[in-house]
């Protein structure tokens, strides 16, 4: 009896959780300019997106920044997690695991205004590169988390030792055995980092400077301008992209475990 009411509540709860997304999805096909009354099915808002040069530019900028940031975060994360798994330093072990998670703990607005004052103070112009570096910092905990878990599960396998018995030195064993085995987790972490960078608004908003318009910043300025069905269509595309990235990351992680 009780479980029935609870299941009913859970269903209502999930309906609430997905209502905004569904409404947006539904009305992205609505053939009306202003209001949310159904006026027939259309794909035209998606067409409008494709012809919007500013939007495509923002997409390209976001992709470039996300690629750079995820590469940076992956390399930094791989080195750090290798050290943390293979030989956790006795001094500073506990410190490192909370220290490397610090970007998750600081509210993003603090990071945004902090980085803004920092870059301006040291006289570095705000541009594409500063934004990518900041995104790499935001994404670091995600790449470390993903790679670390995989390396921990590899640790018991003694494959690295086997490689060394066969004449490889530590570097070769790392390069030819550990790295390929950890690859799915590295790629999975990189995809998460990519998503973090691609979707980041708050930090980017403060430090993007004048010339750099990323996708979320573009969405923000469109929203400031007013409600249009074009934003519905755009939001749906972004949502689809996020889902694809997350599902791929998850599938890779599962495949690494098998």
């Amino acid at each position: 009896m009780k479980s029935k009411w609870l299941s009913f509540y859970a269903a209502a709860f999930y309906a609430f959780l997905y209502m905004p997304i569904s409404v947006m999805f539904f009305f992205s096909f609505n053939n009306a300019r202003r209001n949310v009354v159904w006026r027939g099915f259309t794909f035209k808002w998606y067409g409008v997106l494709l012809r919007d040069a500013g939007l495509l530019g923002a997409l390209l900028t976001s992709l470039k920044i996300a690629v750079l940031a995820s590469l940076l975060a992956s390399v930094l994360g791989l080195l750090a997690s290798y050290a943390l798994v293979c030989r956790p330093p006795r001094f500073g072990r506990a410190f490192y695991s909370s220290w490397l998670n610090a970007p998750l703990l600081v509210p993003e607005i603090v990071l945004g205004v902090g980085l803004l004052s920092f870059f301006v103070r040291i006289g570095v112009p705000l541009n594409f590169w500063t934004l990518a570096c900041a995104h790499a910092m935001l994404a670091l905990p995600y790449t470390i988390g993903s790679v670390r878990a995989r390396l921990l599960s590899l640790k018991g396998s003694q494959l690295e030792e086997a490689a060394m018995d066969l004449g490889a030195d530590h570097w070769e064993a790392f390069l030819k055995v550990t790295l390929p085995l950890a690859k799915p987790a590295i790629v999975s972490g990189a995809l998460l980092a990519f998503t973090i960078s691609f979707e980041d608004f708050v930090t980017s908003f403060f430090i993007a400077g004048v010339g750099v318009v990323t996708m979320p910043i573009k969405v923000y300025s469109m929203m400031k301008f007013g409600v249009t069905p074009e934003i519905n269509a755009l939001s749906c595309c972004l949502l689809a992209l996020t889902l694809i990235l997350l599902v791929s990351a998850q599938v890779l992680r599962k495949s690494a475990k098998a």
Partner: peptide, 17 residues
């Protein structure tokens, strides 16, 4: 999933609603 989607997107859908 809603947590991973951009905050802007969900705020925008609340405006529509």
């Amino acid at each position: 999933i809603p947590f991973w989607t951009s905050a802007l997107v969900s705020i925008y859908s609340w405006i529509i609603i």
